[in-house]
Design a protein around this nucleic acid. Sequence first.
RNA 1: GCUCCUGUGGUGUAGUACGGUCCAUCAUUCCGGGUUUUCAUCCCGGCGACCCGGGUUCAAAUCCCGGCAGGAGCACCA
Length: 490
Amino acid sequence: MEKIDPRALEREKHQKKEGLRDLPGDTSKVVLRFAPNPNGPLSIGHSRGVVINSKYAENYDGKIVLRFDDTDTRVKPPLVEAYEWIEEDFEWLTGRSADIVVRASERMPIYLDRAEKMISEGHGYVCQCGAEEFRGFRESKTDCPCRDREIVESLEDWKTMNSGKMKEGDAVVRVRTDMSLPNPALRDWPALRIQHLPHPTVGDKYKVWPLLDFQSAVEDHEQGVTHIIRGKDLMDSTRKQTLLYEHFGWKYPETLYWGRVKVHEFGGFSTSGMSSSIISGEYSGWEDPRLPTLRALRRRGFEAQSLIDFWGEIGLTQKDISISMQTVESFNSKIIDKICERRFFVSNPVPIEIQSENKPNEAKIARHPDGEIPGMRKWEIDNLIFIQESDFIQGKLRLKDFADIEITGSDAEIEGEQRSDDRPIIHWLSEKISREARMFVPEGGEMRELVGLIEDFELRVGEVYQFERVGFARLDRIDNDVVELIWLHG
RNA sequence: GCUCCUGUGGUGUAGUACGGUCCAUCAUUCCGGGUUUUCAUCCCGGCGACCCGGGUUCAAAUCCCGGCAGGAGCACCA
């Protein structure tokens, strides 16, 4: 009887399934891709794509392609520096570089060749209807006049388009689907259009450029992509591209989607929106701590792992979600609390004169309270100390790791070094160790600035410290002897 | 208008393909308590949810029908 496992009698509680769900289809040689537009650096929204795709690549021992979708020179033109920024952001986040990096703009011959083939096989045609005009045909499910022209005529127009003799907007290459399709988005969708504006990296060599749906479809096939994971706003892209794949006789990759993501603290933002706010001077640059770019988060002191943990917890769902940075901060705290040294930062300092004659002349405070980082911070103590204005009272206080004091006016008497009662414990600074500091706190679109004194003990630029009773902040730089800190979180 | 996606606590998420083991999982927030010479970390406890209405069934978060709500696409942007 006693051999029966007693646990078998207990009611089993359901467990939360951990990790990402399995990828569908053939997973023997997985190839994934992350395809941003290089019109700015990566933001927190992009990080979901990077994290999820690279996690799957890791899980299945597959490959990940970083592809720059840079075939638009007019509406969202590429930013030359952004290619490099994105590669840096990708590496920061995943700890490695992508297996393959491709720029769509450098693969133009492949797309143009494919387009010509499509036209000559009758699966596509050159359409010279205006955008408005075609909208009417699409809505009324009627064929446009260009649709029934001979293939040779389309081919001739195709050559004219490429020669540069046709103006932008005069013609477009469409994929022949079916104008009576129930979903209007799929009816003879546009695949390539004319652009005369030079491309920032390849110049004015090409006059006809593919749109996303065509370029992406062809390139995914070229790279042997097996699984596409993208936003569900691109569901119709999948349907359009599937039609194209049928024309070409290719097998479309397995496709998974995530829903729309909003971040409470940042509201609605877009790369192009941020770009114009930076140009107008509203923000100092892409690294402005108020921005949701990965560069800004990195500058504030977020660990890449916090984002990996965060997106892993959210997983891959098609729900439109509204997330809070608080959750990311919580993951970050768990990581950095163990590795950050402690320091004091006294904002709005109030000077206090210690009157006691036999005061100790040195303070020793642990670098880390749990001994995760061994060693002590040692300071000299003179008679002059500073405490934070918000802590300033008339009465009894304990200067953390130093002494019990009683304040009268702006003088203080040391009552003893040992803690003698449960009076409030505050952080403080000796004048000998104080250095002027400013802490920048991003608050929505504003930047609050706290002026105060920092504990000048082995400070290093780029390091994240936990300021006791204040919170985490990163030492951004030292300007004219003034230490500049950027607030991370509590 | 047409096409499509999604609805589980404050915010996310597990469970939904094969209905019972779910008086519904876990994280985060919030509240309370403990450890701590930080208002940090850590530990313990608590509050809090299956969009609505029908139907099928002994039994529905799960299946069916009908609503409703939110989001997306229908760009010569990505």
